[in-house]
């Protein structure tokens, strides 16, 4: 179609220009976000020197790693049951529940979780955040694993059993290594989804368990400081690296059996 090519350029410029502005001004020497006054890493130095930011970063990493681990393990077990096990009663309900956090608006899940913790009087700081994150990380971990398992020929597992491997060893030596690209992809997605989450964390986290996005939000609310640009850029960089890596991993996995 004529004009679509040109429009695609506009599309990508629209998609990236705001991000480029953010990144460029995070290296600006001055405070302004309109005037370029020279390259500097000052704001990064400031941001990383800021104790609150350090604490928020540590919190974010703790939550992201633990939620990733828990979600990946739960998702792997669920995927094995749904993609490999015998059909069971309630299988569809189970699958829908697993994927529901993807479709329900975050704010709804957020207030439901907050209400739940408050009704139980559960005030465990970061642990509450970890629980909430695990819930919505599960579908992100599940989907790549399930996709991988469904592309895995079941006769490979039959062959392993046929060649004298018991159920566990067939899983260990054949199913697990072959499912690994899916598991890694799922874990990566769970990690960045947890790292980047804001709405649910905002509602669930207490003062001591602020994560990086929540801290950024607070700073934006108080008025902009170039420090925000620096922290935001750093967060963006982490996500981008993981996604690019994930993208190539899943693409190369797709081309292999």
């Amino acid at each position: 179609m004529p004009g679509f090519g040109a429009w695609t350029w506009v599309f990508y410029i629209f998609l990236y220009l705001p991000l480029v502005i953010l990144v460029v001004f995070s290296f600006n020497a001055g405070r302004s976000a309109t005037v370029w006054s020279g390259f500097s890493l000052d704001w990064y130095a400031r941001a990383f020197g800021n104790e609150s930011i350090q604490r928020a970063t540590v919190n974010s990493l703790i939550v992201a790693f633990s939620a990733m681990t828990a979600a990946t393990v739960l998702a792997l077990l669920a995927a094995l049951a749904l993609m490999r096990g015998r059909r069971f009663r309630g299988g569809t309900v189970f699958r829908v529940t697993l994927l529901a956090p993807l479709m329900i608006p975050e704010i709804v899940t957020a207030v439901a979780t907050l209400t739940f913790f408050s009704a139980l009087g559960m005030q465990l700081g970061l642990f509450n955040v970890f629980i909430a994150h695990t819930v919505f990380c599960i579908p992100f971990a599940y989907l790549p694993i399930a996709a991988r398992l469904s592309n895995l020929d079941e006769s490979l597992e039959c062959a392993a059993r046929d060649l004298y491997a018991g159920a566990w060893r067939a899983f260990r030596r054949v199913t697990l290594p072959l499912a690994m690209p899916g598991i890694a992809a799922g874990a990566m997605l769970a990690f960045i989804i947890s790292l980047d989450d804001f709405v649910i964390t905002l509602m669930v986290a207490d003062a001591g368990s602020t994560t990086l996005p929540v801290y950024i939000f607070g700073m934006v609310r108080m008025g902009t400081s170039p420090e925000i640009n620096a922290v935001s850029t750093a967060l963006l960089a982490v996500t981008t690296v993981i996604i690019v890596f994930h993208y190539y991993l899943s693409n190369s996995a797709k081309n292999r059996p």
Partner: peptide
Amino acid sequence: LPPEKRPVNTVFQNYALFPH
């Protein structure tokens, strides 16, 4: 008996060689 306990082996239609 489960498959691993049977002195029987199979050549699968699509071979089912372990790709890894």
